[in-house]
Write a protein that binds this DNA or RNA. Structure first.
Lengths: 187, 187
DNA sequence: CCTACCGATCGGTAGG
DNA sequence: CCTACCGATCGGTAGG
């Protein structure tokens, strides 16, 4: 891992723990083990660091949803796969996901608009899977927008309580999520 | 509305929009229409403002869950009521809820620990309703902890996309949520 | 990668 | 509720 990657890893963790605005470049430099001024030999600016974290994480989510969306499966299996892929991205990168989900708002234009557009596109993929399931008659005729928002909302909070060292694997968690969403709680 | 209440309302909105750390007392004072120094005639400190917002919002959530938990109903109806109450708190106070959900981490001790304890207690109430439903045989034998976390996660993101001026009322949203969680997506 | 430093801004207080 | 101000800290640059 070169110094730039190291800076980014540590920044991810600090941005997650304290928030982007409350993390100073001096704090970051100290954690890395260099002087604040030296950071700028590796990065352009504080915001550039945030931008890279947010957009790289977005790419990971996109890869997952593309896999689910193009898989030759029925919509229920596609939805399960999309959930599994999403949870895997989060579980593999808890800090990056948390920054992606909460710190993006400190981006400035033009990145802010670009980021929002990506985020919306991602949600629409979930909505489309649900709509396909409804039109094929395997899902109940629900409000696909509200459902996609609700599902992603539940998924988006995982970084907040998921413990990688716990006994619940990402796969087991994904299976429970799919079951919850597809089958419901009632017997 | 006296000046103190006004400061608090505006602070709530600004803390939500920019985050606690990125909101300066000068920004807040300008929005209120006074000088920064004058804020301190009404509040003790920036953190005290945050503390009041977070704890008052916690009280609102507690009131709702207490109502649901003590209602003479079957667990499925209790869960629906708890969801409805939660959504109503969020919908009635979108800014305060967002601060409650995301900015509490800027609290310092002893408030931080107190806040975390309250948050955990709240989630446990949901878990207990689910456990009661399982033991009474009306819910599937799921992992009540994962399910309560998932349900609250979905509920906790509502402030992020709910538009009070839209056509979806809090009641209608609550009905959809309950249906999603109890009945699932599969036909 | 460092020392030295820039102008700007921070939360908050003194005193009226 | 204001003016005036405190020491601390911010992101970032110059120059080596």
């Amino acid at each position: 891992m070169n110094r730039k990657e190291q800076i980014r890893e540590i920044a991810q963790t600090m941005f997650r723990e304290r928030g982007y605005a409350a993390t100073s470049m001096r704090d970051l430099a100290t954690a890395v083990g260099i002087e604040a001024a030296s950071l700028y030999n590796h990065i352009k600016s504080k915001e550039d660091l945030l931008k890279e974290i947010c957009f790289d994480c977005a790419d990971e989510f996109f890869e997952g949803i593309h896999k689910a969306k193009t898989a030759p499966m029925a919509p229920d299996a596609q939805l399960s796969l999309a959930i599994k892929e999403h949870i895997q991205v989060v579980a593999n990168n808890l800090d990056g996901s948390a920054v992606f989900l909460h710190e993006w708002r400190f981006l400035t234009e033009p990145y802010l608009s670009e980021f929002k557009a990506k985020r919306k596109y991602y949600r629409l993929q979930f909505q489309q899977i649900i709509e396909k399931g409804i039109s094929e008659g395997i899902f109940k005729p629900v409000d696909a927008k509200v459902y996609s928002l609700s599902i992603l909302s539940a998924l988006n909070w995982i970084y907040d309580w998921y413990k990688p060292e716990g006994e619940l694997s990402p796969q087991a968690l994904a299976a429970q999520f799919s079951y919850l969403i597809l089958e419901g709680l009632n017997k």
